[in-house]
Amino acid sequence: MSALNNLLIPAVLFFALGVITRLIKSDLRLPPDLAKMLSIYLLMAIGLHGGYELGRADLGAAFNAVAWAIALGFTLPLMGYGLLMLTRRVDRMNAAAIAAHYGSVSAGTFLTAIAYLDNAGIAYEAYPLIMLAVMESPAIVVGLLLASWSRQRLAVQDGGVASIDNGPANGQWRSLLHEAMTNGSVVLLIGSMAIGAISAPASMEKLFPFIDEIFMGVLCLFLFEMGMEAARRLREFRRVGAVLVAFGLVMPLVGGVIGIAVGHWALGLGIGGTTLVAVLGASASYIAVPPAMRLAVPEANPSFYLTLALGITFPFNVVIGIPLYHHLAVLVIN
């Protein structure tokens, strides 16, 4: 099995086609809500499927996975923030917003990893799916806390109380936290998992054409669109600068290695499951976190965090990261 062979999966190839479509300036335009519809389907299908399997899984192991997901969700953004401040290329507010993206997860990357594992015939546990649902929110909370702390430091630096009015007031904290926890993709994923777990198995089997058989086709469409969206960000690279681009490549490696350690040593997962946890650690959110940061950290520039998460880290993970984490998992486990 060569590395190239691993890339020759329709889903990954469609991602590449999306990038090419944009680069050659094709006139192809997808309907505005397509990505949203496809991601709703993908979250629902993967949630039902995972819930169905989790319904028969060990509850203790599931709780363990949740605990580690929360730990990862809180730790990764702090590491990202530290790394970003070391680069000295972004201010604290931008660092806080970017870090939140890297602590959260990308369902698109996770699903691509599942396509990759399926293609290679590697089995994987259902627990990483719970972690996917859990890891959406903690990083948003950490991002908010980092931003609020940075705001206070900046206010002190400016020598005054002038900035007390800046940022979310106390009353808004509750609504921001509420938003982080009730984010649409979290609700959809957890809700579908619950339905999959408690539904009668016979009735679930009737759903298999919907959640299994067309799944990879829908993923191809989704990745095709995301390829176009990623390529749209390419022209922003210059604005972001080489150092931040490097961060977008280094941070997933850091998260991926930590994910492998958690998957293998802390959770005792097999090669497939460990690869998926690595992907969770490595991926950066581009659906749930950006709107939250726009609302809560207006001082940060969206073109920075969107370019990094969607234009750099997502393609890197899809093309290079996933096979790399898989090989690392094989090395560590064997």
């Binding site: 997808l30 505005p32 397509l34 990505a35 949203k36 669109e225 969206e229 749209r232 960000r233 922003e236 604005r239 581009y286 659906i287 950006p290 709107p291 726009r294 520039n301 969206p302 073109s303 969107l306 370019t307 969607l310």
Partner: peptide
């Protein structure tokens, strides 16, 4: 109205929740 364009926050394609 839904809108798309570009400016200080980068391109707003209107294709994703994020932009």
């Amino acid at each position: 109205l839904r809108a798309r364009g570009a400016g200080s926050s980068g391109e707003q394609s209107g294709m994703l929740d994020a932009d």
